[in-house]
Design a protein around this nucleic acid. Structure first.
Lengths: 165, 165
DNA sequence: ATTAGTGCAAAAGGTTTGCAGACCA
DNA sequence: TGGTCTGCAAACCTTTTGCACTAAT
């Protein structure tokens, strides 16, 4: 919808999130460490739906001594801080998303190329609320995932991503 | 919406599904076995969102020698046959549902009592289709899950289910 | 100093698989 | 008989945890 954000704006946002995380850490009486800084910084420098493996791979480029345990532990803190959300799309591994995810959104997952698109539709949200209300159900959060094919979606032509497997 | 189905009708449906599975098995050139019959029969005799553990527990009442492996393998066949659907609600284990699931439906998951309610709303479905169409995305299937609380929902008062843990 | 964090490797929890023996067609 | 299926246990994969060591406050 809106034009893509400039690189500078994205980097600024990443810095803001890092700072917010520092504040969270301090507020909890926890310690700032080199590893945590690295992981958080790398995470917010990435975009999309990042698996632990992907994150660790990137983190290791900065500091090869960091292992899975620390990445998992830091990711949990990030989720706890509210800056990052955990998702599971059914392939058995958790994915995390943080950056640019200011607002709630849902997902379209292309089963052919594996790409994940985000969308947001206020009517859909409103209808869900109404439906829940009718059932006397109070929604804390929800998840809507459309699985299918983005064949005509211009992005699907570039099917590089999953090709490697 | 509709009145609850009679026990006889449900049992008939279960029998139909069992038969359909037999046909699937034969069409694939696989063999009918005592264990598979037991598992399939027990499965279709249950209702709701059944975990492997739950299913195995029930199966063992009929034949204690049956183990996880066979249940998993049979469940995969059931999914492959299209008679059963696999679901994951984020607690790390797969759940399967078959019976009464003639039509597509979505879920409301109560985070307090753990109960799972099904619902179906044509407007929501139509809106999703429209949305996908607008994005040139073809939906094969989708998943909508509302997580929250059924506090006023009459069923939530009977909180026995998760209490045991 | 004190307390939390890290890294490793081992454990856990759910699911899959290899294999020898049992069973169906 | 011949090929699938079963049951067991071992393997797998992702995630968690125990512990000795290191580092932040």
């Amino acid at each position: 919808m809106t034009a893509e954000k400039s690189r500078e704006a994205e980097e600024q946002m990443a810095r803001d999130k890092e700072k917010a995380f520092q504040e969270f850490i301090q507020a909890k009486g926890l310690k700032t460490t080199r590893q945590r800084n690295t992981i958080v910084s790398v995470f917010f420098g990435l975009r999309g739906h990042i698996s632990v493996e992907e994150l660790l791979r990137e983190v290791k480029k900065v500091n090869p001594r960091i292992g899975y345990a620390t990445v998992y532990r830091t990711l949990h803190l990030l989720v706890e801080s509210g800056l990052v959300e955990e998702r599971r799309f059914g392939d058995g591994l958790a994915r995390y998303e943080g950056r640019s995810e200011v607002e709630h959104h849902d997902h379209m997952i292309c089963l052919q190329c594996g790409q994940i698109f985000e969308f947001y539709n206020p009517h859909l949200e409103a209808m869900q609320e109404k439906l829940a209300h009718d059932h006397k159900f109070k929604i804390y959060r929800h998840r809507l995932e459309l699985y299918g094919s983005c064949e005509d979606f211009d992005s699907c032509q570039r099917r590089q991503r999953k090709a490697a497997d």
